[in-house]
Amino acid sequence: MFKMFLFSLKNLFSKPATLPEGTEKPKQYRGLIKYYEETCIYCKKCEMVCPPGAIIFTYPEDGSKRLIFHYNPYLCIYCGECVRACPKPGTLVQVEDTAPPATAQDKPNDLWFEVEKEAVESKKIWQEARRKKRNK
């Protein structure tokens, strides 16, 4: 008990151990995912591999091959499987930033529920358009 008392007295006159706000420390943190559309071949492997389903592709109405990419940083578990599964290196890149905290005015949940419904409905319209193109 006496030793802890001396230790506390010594701490009174030395530098504090808290991290001040805004310090930069060296880290290799696994953060957000960035998508580059130029090299993507739309194989949808990243959508199949993701465990919680944070990547969803929606389909355009005219039946063309270029799908639209949606990513939800609030559902992602930051494991990095999509980066490893992509056959074209450089399409998906993991950076060191974190997602900003969301307040009630951004409404992140309602937007994502709509995206999920739209993916199912737009797929039917897209398949109809492709069938018409092939029959012509």
Partner: peptide
């Protein structure tokens, strides 16, 4: 520094 995250090191 080694794995990328503090607790859930995948």
């Amino acid at each position: 520094i080694l794995t990328g995250n503090r607790i859930q090191a995948d």
